[in-house]
Design a protein around this nucleic acid. Structure first.
Lengths: 336, 336
DNA sequence: CGGGGGACTGGAAGCGCTTACATTCCACGT
DNA sequence: ACGTGGAATGTAAGCGCTTCCAGTCCCCCG
C-alpha cells in the first residue's frame, strides 16, 4: 500500500504551508518563483497528485463535463466521444458519460439535473430526444450547456442544416427521376423522434413538394438508427408500397435498407436507390451515397465552446453551422 | 440558484443527526425502520442528493470504475461501453473513461496509475496494447482489475479463444481450397500489436501449418482496425503477392479489404475471399463471413466480475471463456 | 428488581483540499 | 528613521460527507 502523498506531505517537506503548495502547484499568483520551483520539484519527487475528490469538494468545481447522449454503441456517438475527448483531455478535464436512452432514463436525468451541477461544470448535449421540460431546465439553469447536432439559440451549439442537407439529398434522387421516394427516420428507444430526424424529414418533404409530388404516408417509416432497424423499415415499406428510392437518416439504417432490398431479390440502385446520412468510413467502402457531416470536428468545436463558457465567457449563445456535402456514390448512381 | 439541500438540511428537518441520515439513506443497519422512513421521506421532499465529492472524499471510495481502452470511435469499443454501462448503472456506479491510445498516452497512464486508485475503485481493461510494466503494476497493485479480451490468469478476465477462433476461420478458407491466405492484423497508433491480433495470427499460422503450407511474410500486413487501414493493407498485399483469401482481425478492416479488392477490379469472393472478426451488425448486412463474438455480453460479464471484487471478493482470478462461432456468409462462400 | 446487552442515536473527528483573511516582510518614499 | 503598500506566506475555516466511539434507552434474564 504505497499511500500516495498528500498536500501536507509536500508542504512539510518543502517547508511551506499547504496554502502555498496549493498555489504553487496550480500556478496561481502570490508565490515567488523560487518557492514555486521548489514546491514543484518536491511534488514531483513525491509523485504527488492532488486528490481530485478533495479538490472538487473544496473548490466546488468538478473539473468534469457531462456528455449527454442516448446510446454508446453507434458510430455517430463514438465519433462524438472521440472528438470531445481530444479537446477536454488537453484541458485536463474529465468527461462524465450520461447515457439517456429511453424514456425512463430521460426522466431520471431530468430529475437529477439540479443535483448534477455538483458533479459537472458543464453539459454537452448530443443530438438527442429532448422533452420540452429539458429545454427549459437547461436554458434556465446556471449550468453552462453546449450542444452538438441541436440547432438552437438557447445555448451554444454546433450543428448542420439538417433540412437543407436532406433537401439536397432528396433533390438528387428527384433529379435521377425518382418519384416514389421513401423516408426512414428515427428515434431511439421509446422516446420520440430525434429533432434532427424530424428536420431531415421536413427537408425531404420540401424537396418532393417542390416537384409537386404528394407525400405518401406509406413511404415514411421510423427506424432506431441501427442496421436492423433500417432493414425492418425497408422490408415493411417494400411489402406495402414500392419506392424507387429511399432516404435514410443514418448510414447504418441505409445499410440495413440495402440489405432488405437485396433480400427482396431487388437490386440497389436499379430497383431502389438508397441514400444515407453521416458518411461513416464504411459508407465510402460500400459506395453508399450519403450526406457527409464532420462529426468528430463538430464535437470538438462544441467542446471548445463549452470550455470557453467554463472560463467565464457569458456572451449570448453562439450558433455554429457546419457545412454538409452530398457524397454521390453507387447506391444511387451506378451499380454496386 | 436553487442551492441543493445538504445532509445537514435533511438532518435538522428530520430532527435527527447527520450520522443517522447518512445511515438511513444508505440502508445501513442501526437505524429503526421508523426513523429510516422518516428520513427518506424528508430527503425526497427536499430532493436531497448526496454530494458525490464529499462522499468520495470521506469514504475513500469513488464509486467509479475506470475503463481503459485505446479509442472511442470504433464499433468494438462502443459495444464494450454499452455492455459495461448497463451493468454499472444498476449499481449506481459511474464509469470513468481512460483513453489510452498511443504510446504517450500509455506512458502517462502508467505513471498515473498509483494516483488513479483515488479516482476509481477498480479498473476494466479492454483488449489493449499492454506494455510489460503495466502487467506487473496491474497485478501487483491493490486495485481490483478485470479485463475484456485479454486472456490472463493474473486478474479476472472474460475472453475468447482467439487462436482457436482464428484457426477455425482459416481452416474454413483452407477447406474451400485456398492456399495463399493473407492476414491483416493490427495494432493501434504507434504502440505494438494488440495481443488479440497476435493470438489470431498464431491461430492462422497453426491452421496453414496443419496443411503443410509455408507462411509467406508478404501475406501478413498490419492495419489499425479501421476501414481505411484494411483497405491500405489489402491494396499493398494485392500489389506484391496475390492471396486468394484474407483473414482480417476486425470487420472494419475486412470491409476495407473488400473495398480494395473491388478497387483492384477483382471480385469477392471469386478472386479473393475475405473473413472478418467480431460480427458487427453490418457484417451480416453485407454478407461478410466473420467470427462472431458477443462483445456486449462479454463486457457486461467482465463488469459484473469487477463489481464482485469491489464487494470484497478476493478469490483467485477467474477466467471466463466465451464461445465464438464462425458465421459463414457470402464473402467466402457465395457471390456478394 | 438490578444488571447486562442489544438496538438506536448523536457527537465529533476527520477525508485532503481551496481560499478568505491575517500576518510578515521588505523596499521605498519622505 | 519611520510609515506604507504590496508581494509572499501562513492560518484556519470550511466543503459535505462517512464512520468510529460513546452514550441512551429499553427489554429480558437471573
Amino acid at each position: 500500500m504505497p499511500a500516495v502523498a498528500t498536500i501536507e506531505d509536500v508542504a512539510s517537506r518543502a517547508g511551506v504551508s499547504v496554502a502555498t503548495v496549493s498555489r504553487a502547484l496550480r500556478g496561481l499568483p502570490h508565490v515567488s518563483p523560487a518557492t514555486r520551483d521548489k514546491v514543484r520539484k518536491i511534488a514531483a519527487e513525491l509523485d504527488y497528485r492532488a486528490n481530485p475528490h478533495a479538490s472538487r469538494l473544496a473548490a466546488g468545481r468538478s473539473g468534469t463535463i457531462g456528455i449527454v447522449l442516448p446510446v454508446l454503441n453507434s458510430w455517430f456517438y463514438g465519433n462524438v466521444l472521440a472528438g470531445v475527448e481530444a479537446v477536454v483531455a488537453e484541458d485536463h478535464l474529465d468527461m462524465h458519460l450520461l447515457t439517456v436512452g429511453g424514456r425512463r432514463a430521460m426522466e431520471r436525468f431530468v430529475s437529477d439535473l439540479p443535483a448534477l451541477s455538483k458533479q459537472v461544470d458543464g453539459l454537452l448535449i448530443v443530438d438527442l430526444f429532448m422533452p420540452d421540460q429539458l429545454w427549459d431546465d437547461l436554458s434556465g439553469g446556471s449550468l453552462p450547456v453546449a450542444s452538438i447536432g441541436l440547432d438552437t439559440d438557447r445555448f451554444d451549439c454546433v450543428s448542420i442544416d439538417n433540412t437543407a442537407a436532406a433537401r439536397d439529398a432528396v433533390m438528387h434522387l428527384l433529379e435521377l427521376g425518382h418519384r416514389r421516394i421513401g423516408f426512414i427516420g428515427g428515434g431511439l428507444g421509446e422516446s420520440g423522434e430525434l429533432e434532427s430526424a424530424e428536420l431531415r424529414r421536413r427537408g425531404m418533404l420540401e424537396a418532393i413538394a417542390s416537384q409537386g409530388i404528394v407525400p405518401d404516408p406509406d413511404l415514411e417509416k421510423s427506424g432506431d438508427f441501427s442496421v436492423a432497424g433500417g432493414r425492418r423499415a425497408m422490408t415493411a415499406m417494400l411489402t406495402h408500397s414500392a419506392p424507387t428510392a429511399v432516404f435514410c437518416t443514418s448510414d447504418e439504417m441505409a445499410i440495413g435498407a440495402i440489405w432488405a432490398v437485396r433480400e427482396a431479390g431487388l437490386s440497389v440502385p436499379d430497383d431502389v436507390a438508397i441514400v444515407g446520412f453521416d458518411d461513416q468510413p464504411v459508407a465510402q467502402a460500400l459506395g453508399l451515397t450519403t450526406v457527409h457531416q464532420p462529426v468528430g470536428s463538430m464535437a470538438a468545436r462544441a467542446a471548445a465552446m463549452l470550455l470557453e463558457r467554463l472560463q467565464g465567457d457569458t456572451a449570448t449563445p453562439r450558433r455554429s453551422r457546419v457545412a454538409t456535402r452530398l457524397e454521390i456514390r453507387q447506391s444511387t448512381a451506378g451499380s454496386t
